[in-house]
Design a protein around this nucleic acid. Sequence first.
DNA 1: CTTGACCCTCCAGCTGCTGGAAGGCCTAGA
DNA 2: TCTAGGCCTTCCAGCAGCTGGAGGGTCAAG
Lengths: 136, 136
Amino acid sequence: MRMEVLSIGEAASRSGVPPKTIRYYEEIGLIAPAERLENRYRAYDENDVQTLRFIQRARRLGFSLKEVAALLGLYRNRRRASKDVKRLALARVAELDRKIAELKAIRNTIADLAERCHGDHRPECPILDELESHAH
Amino acid sequence: MRMEVLSIGEAASRSGVPPKTIRYYEEIGLIAPAERLENRYRAYDENDVQTLRFIQRARRLGFSLKEVAALLGLYRNRRRASKDVKRLALARVAELDRKIAELKAIRNTIADLAERCHGDHRPECPILDELESHAH
DNA sequence: CTTGACCCTCCAGCTGCTGGAAGGCCTAGA
DNA sequence: TCTAGGCCTTCCAGCAGCTGGAGGGTCAAG
């Protein structure tokens, strides 16, 4: 694999992570500080792009930056134990299940209220009444 | 209804909205600046508590502060049209449906990967491989 | 040689709070 | 009367995870 030198913009378009976000990741230490060219431009290679893609996919799956950092560590560690990765993944699934259930409950509450609301020019609407007086 | 004067702490415990959050709501203009006693303490009454409860319930239903502001406006407007309220509610439902579907997809992706991961001391784990190479 | 597209750093802001510092006030007990 | 504590006040900072902009430097094309 030839190690072509990529600018931050090129690394961005190849990885899907915007330049600003790449700099941010560097700033918070998620990725190592990039090499610099003589003009102080950051220089990347395909490995960096790969890492950025890894990060982006993990982020898309809803892993927090802290979790992504952990995953990156496991990813880079050849002696990695799949137990740790699985633990992170299952924790994320549990969290998602909790969140989904919560959103569903809220969704149904609002949908019920909306159904009982005329939705015309008349002022009667149980949504506001509910918000006003519902004893939770 | 007697208009007992309540301190911010009392208003907080009666409404369920913490003092800091009440001050914050005042700061961003969600609620009107509170009257002040001679010692500069904020003074509230039952009406204010009612409003805070309204806000809290709307927040629990996941309405953003902007939406809450709109709901408050409609709530206070006697000539309010239920159409506007319903529109807000349905928009929220649609947004929730979108979010729920998204989280479900993510959840299933991670759960699938976790299932195929040994979860022991062995290094093989498709989760990392997927993050590494999955062409999205 | 100029124009425009990059790149750099630094600072501010987004949402919705929350914590803490530094100070004022008020009540109760010793 | 003093003091301890628990309120209250303001202001500043920080959480996550970026994103936008200002004010500059650099570079390649025409």
